[in-house]
Design a protein around this nucleic acid. Sequence first.
DNA 1: GTCTATACCCTGATAGAC
DNA 2: GTCTATCAGGGTATAGAC
Lengths: 205, 205
Amino acid sequence: MSVTSERQTAKRAQILKGAMAVFLRLGYAGTSMDRVATEAGVSKQTIYSHFQDKEGLFRSLIEGETLARFEAVFQLDPHQVDPETLLRRLAQIYFTQVVDNSQYVPLLRIVIGESERFPELARLFTETVAQRGKKLLCEYFRHHPELSIRDPEAIAQIFFGSMVSWVILQKMLYGEASFDLSRDRVVNQLIDLIVGHSGNRSYSD
Amino acid sequence: MSVTSERQTAKRAQILKGAMAVFLRLGYAGTSMDRVATEAGVSKQTIYSHFQDKEGLFRSLIEGETLARFEAVFQLDPHQVDPETLLRRLAQIYFTQVVDNSQYVPLLRIVIGESERFPELARLFTETVAQRGKKLLCEYFRHHPELSIRDPEAIAQIFFGSMVSWVILQKMLYGEASFDLSRDRVVNQLIDLIVGHSGNRSYSD
DNA sequence: GTCTATACCCTGATAGAC
DNA sequence: GTCTATCAGGGTATAGAC
């Protein structure tokens, strides 16, 4: 039975891998089960023996991607680090560990695009991904009153929201074709605004 | 001929109105031409006599919505207004004239969701909508060196990006269910950061 | 559990009457 | 230009052999 179980989970992973390639490229409605079967290298009936239907497959896929990808992100200890270093490190983690992953942009696109058909996936995404860094930053602000941050949650929204909207505008909506603006400039100005330093270093230092 | 032409444009507008209701709710692939015909109150063949195919209808719809909706936005004269008033007025225009329109969130969602299949629509959207306010704000910063804005474009990205990402998180991805954060708090903190005032007024004052 | 073959519906697009 | 009727193809999901 353990062998059978291993085979099952292997097939399941194989199906999910193929499904991810198709769903993230073509969206939910644009994806056919035939195409998933071909991409995964299994027959259609095999998919239906592991997942109830197309919706169930899609939910399992997005849920798994959301939870697996971001559970190890933003785990740093914020104490005993100066503010500029913390903000720069958070930006670095977001850009190098999240944005530079080739599946982040398509995943964000499909979560947004299908957020009306699958609202619970959208909520899962916001709760696991968006709130994580925000809570860490808010806690830091509350323990550092010398920064005189009036509204930590609003500042956290500004900090992460500026970076996310940069990704959407530049990478998702092809804004870089008509408007060149590097990550570093946004991060430097954010740090300049929040902690009042000049902020000329790169986020990747 | 003028009567015929009027009838044509009336039918065309009728089709586009029905198409908008369906496309914005179900996405491109999720929309069927049968459903558009029913919603618009015309037959399917009538649609095909006005538009080449499904793609052509979709492109006309999104292009028209993008151009018509935002051509009158951000037309204010920025000169001889103090910085806080300008930023607060820009935020007010964005939230009341853009976000509060019931079609903005679905339109933004579908432009993002279909940005891989229709990249030229995504570029049109960024160029007409996103860049308009940004350019106005940048020009203002350049004419007001007393604000000592080092990187106007980056600050403009932070200003508008924070508001757009607030809409995406709170309204599109249902973040308001787990995280309450009002517009006013974000706008007040943005103004506080950029012009250094306390910012306790409402954006709608 | 996995495959081939198939049922049945709905899709985009068109033909022809008026 | 607008409608009804229809075509060919692809959609999800399932039946039955092994």
